[in-house]
């Protein structure tokens, strides 16, 4: 997200697209987990397992994970950039938010992969 790698225009384009996708995917997620499937059932082990292993829902969770974290950490980056304008601060904010995004996506993706492919115990 550094300004040398990407122009701010492109970063904001990503921010808008991930924002719109997040609204859509979070709506589906919330409606499915609380309305379409009764909440008590939705959080049961067997139901959660079947959702992770459902090709569309599992993929949707992974996409949601990526778009919401890119959007969220870029939002945090924007707020932090506005607080201090030194070169060091800007560079640190860019690097830390990118690392935080990648690490959090990696950890969430690990959950999805293990839920789909791991052995049940």
């Amino acid at each position: 997200m550094g300004d040398k790698i990407m122009t701010e225009r492109k970063i904001m384009m990503i921010q808008y697209v991930t924002g719109i996708l997040s609204v859509f995917l979070v709506s589906v997620h919330l409606l499915y987990q609380g309305v379409i499937v009764p909440y008590e059932k939705a959080i049961s082990f067997s139901q959660v397992l079947s959702l992770y292993r459902h090709i569309f829902y599992g993929s949707m969770l992974e996409i949601l994970l990526v778009v919401i974290l890119v959007h969220g950490f870029n939002g945090l980056r924007i707020i932090l950039l506005e607080l201090n304008q030194s070169q060091d601060w800007s560079k640190a904010v860019d690097i830390i938010t990118v690392i935080a995004t990648v690490v959090t996506i990696a950890y969430g993706t690990r959950t999805v992969i293990l839920a789909v492919f791991g052995g049940v115990s």
């Binding site: 300004d3 225009r9 924007i78």
Partner: peptide, 9 residues
């Protein structure tokens, strides 16, 4: 205007 402290802020 297209920079991290430009119009997008």
């Amino acid at each position: 205007l297209d920079n991290p402290h430009g119009i997008w802020r």
